[in-house]
Nucleic acid binder design. Structure first.
Length: 290
DNA sequence: AGAGCGCCATCTGC
DNA sequence: TGCAGATGGCGCTC
C-alpha cells in the first residue's frame, strides 16, 4: 500500500481529537485528593468569546423561567474542555445506605460526582483555611460532615464568566459525569433548604448529547372544587456539548428534572454536567444533584 | 432512590 | 397503511 493512501485512511478512521496542552500551574488544597491543573490557556482565551449564542428565554409555561444558551461554550473548545475535565477532576461514585424495614441496602448512584465550594456562612482564606464569613474565625472541623473544598481555578474561570453573563453570583459547583447511557439521574428538584427561595442554577453540558427532561410538579386538586387545573406540558431539551441552561425564579420550586438512561451509541461517549449555584446555608453535601 | 421487571404507547424503517 | 423491532415512560417491588 502506498504511503499516502495509508495516511488518509488513518486520518479518516481516527481523526485527531483536539488535545489540550496541560498547564504547569495547579490548584492545590488539603481537601483535594490530588492537585487539579489550571484551565489550559487556549481554553481560557476562547472562553472570552462566551456565550457563543444569545440565551433564549423559556418562560412561556406556568412557573417556568429558563434561559437556554445553545451553545454557551465555543464549539472550538467544547470537546477539549470535556477531555480535560474528565481527566483532571477527582470524580467518585456516591454510595449510601438506606434502611427498608429491617433490611440494609447500599445504593450506588448511577453517575460520577465531584463537589466544590462552600455556603455563604463560610469562606476560604488565601492560604486555603476555612473561616466564618463574618468573623473570619476558623471553622471547627465538626461543622461540616464532608470537608468543603474551594472551587479550583479551572472551574472558577467558567464560574466568573457565567456570573458576568447571568448577573447571578455563585459559590458552589457540582459536577456530574455520566459515563455512558446507563448513567442517569431520576426526577428531582434542587434542594431549596440549601439554596434558598427562587435559586438560580447554571447548568453546563459537555460531551455526549443527552436528553434533559422537565415536568411540572403535580398540582394538588383545589380543595372543595372539582376544577382540574391543567398541567403544563413536559419539556425535552436535547443538551449538546457546550450548551448551558440557566434555571431561576420559580422553576426549582415547581418543576422536576431528570437525565434518563439512554440506549444507543451517542450516550456512550459520556457527558459532563457542571452546575453553579449559590448555597445559602450549610448542606449535607451528598443530597445535591444536577 | 436505584435496579429490575412487566406492560404498553410511540416511533421508525420497510 | 400495516407490522415488527426498538425505544422509552410508568408503575410496582425489593
Amino acid at each position: 500500500m502506498k504511503r499516502g493512501a495509508l495516511d488518509s485512511f488513518v486520518t479518516l478512521v481516527a481523526p485527531k481529537k483536539p488535545k489540550y496542552e496541560a498547564s504547569a500551574d495547579k490548584s492545590s488544597h488539603a481537601s483535594y485528593p490530588f492537585a487539579i491543573p489550571h484551565l489550559p490557556a487556549q481554553f481560557t482565551e476562547q472562553l472570552g468569546f462566551a456565550p457563543s449564542e444569545e440565551g433564549k428565554p423559556m418562560n412561556d409555561q406556568l412557573d417556568l423561567d429558563l434561559v437556554y444558551y445553545q451553545p454557551y461554550i465555543p464549539s472550538s473548545i467544547a470537546s477539549g474542555v470535556f477531555d480535560f475535565l474528565r481527566t483532571e477532576l477527582p470524580f467518585y461514585r456516591v454510595k449510601y445506605n438506606i434502611t427498608r424495614g429491617s433490611i440494609q441496602t447500599q445504593v450506588n448512584t448511577p453517575r460520577f460526582t465531584t463537589v466544590f465550594g462552600v455556603d455563604e456562612t463560610s469562606r476560604f482564606t488565601a492560604s486555603g483555611a476555612l473561616v466564618d464569613a463574618k468573623s473570619g474565625r476558623p471553622i471547627e472541623a465538626s461543622r461540616y460532615k464532608c470537608k468543603p473544598r474551594p472551587i479550583p481555578q479551572c472551574l472558577d474561570e467558567l464560574r466568573k464568566i457565567t456570573e458576568g453573563t447571568t448577573g447571578e453570583t455563585f459559590n458552589f459547583c457540582l459536577v456530574n459525569y455520566y459515563a455512558d447511557g446507563q448513567d442517569s439521574i431520576s426526577y428531582h428538584s434542587d434542594d431549596e433548604r440549601f439554596l434558598g427561595p427562587n435559586p438560580a442554577i447554571a447548568s453546563f453540558s459537555l460531551g455526549a448529547k443527552r436528553d434533559f427532561l422537565m415536568k411540572h410538579k403535580p398540582i394538588p386538586p383545589k380543595q372543595g372544587g372539582d376544577v382540574i387545573q391543567e398541567e403544563p406540558k413536559p419539556i425535552k431539551l436535547a443538551l449538546g456539548p457546550g450548551d448551558m441552561v440557566l434555571m431561576r425564579g420559580k422553576t426549582q420550586a415547581n418543576w422536576l428534572h431528570s437525565i434518563p438512561k439512554r440506549a444507543g451509541a451517542e450516550a456512550g461517549r459520556g457527558r459532563i454536567n457542571i452546575t453553579f449555584r449559590k448555597a445559602m446555608v450549610k448542606g449535607d453535601g451528598e443530597l445535591l444533584s444536577v
